[in-house]
């Protein structure tokens, strides 16, 4: 199934998450929402989280961007699901890339915004919680 696309330098795991992205979509009235990137640079990610007792019980994303942007978004949702928000805040860009068996060097900075989007969503949740 995974043929020539690997020539671009993507691992099997990246291709798997690109072709079968997990947790795609939106959450209505989310407990936290984060958005990073802009259309000029080529990647936009939106992250939605549902939180109960400070644990991420559900997470969804939408992404405009290249294969690695979609794959990192999908991977970070898998990594964050079920975690305490403080633990999820500890997930770094490098952690996401590592879980995907690495990204091509030129993609490390531009299309690896998924952890940032997750952090934004968690910060949004924490802000809302403080204001309650």
């Amino acid at each position: 199934m995974i043929g020539m696309a690997q020539n671009i330098g993507y691992s099997k795991k990246v291709m798997d998450h690109f072709l079968n992205p997990r947790n795609v979509g939106e959450i209505k009235n989310p407990d936290g929402y984060g958005k990073v990137g802009n259309p000029v640079c080529g990647d936009i990610m939106e992250m939605y989280i549902r939180v109960k007792d400070d644990h991420i019980t559900d997470i969804k994303f939408k992404t405009f961007g290249c294969g690695s942007a979609i794959a990192t978004s999908s991977m970070v949702t898998e990594m964050a699901k079920g975690l305490h928000v403080d633990e999820a805040l500890g997930i770094t860009r490098n952690d996401v890339a590592g879980k995907l068996d690495g990204l091509p060097p030129q993609k490390m900075h531009c299309s690896n915004l998924a952890a940032d989007a997750l952090h934004e969503a968690i910060k949004d949740y924490q802000k809302k919680k403080q204001n309650k």
């Binding site: 043929g3 671009i8 291709m15 080529g42 990647d43 405009f64 961007g65 290249c66 942007a69 531009c110």
Partner: peptide
């Protein structure tokens, strides 16, 4: 609303080889 490298990769799975002018496939980004 969509990006060319994703289109290229996805079509490759149909065994169709194409090109794109998207930044995501260029050396300079």
């Amino acid at each position: 609303y969509i990006e060319g490298e994703s289109i290229l990769l996805s079509l490759d799975m149909y065994n169709i080889q194409v090109a794109t002018g998207s930044a995501c496939t260029s050396r300079t980004l």
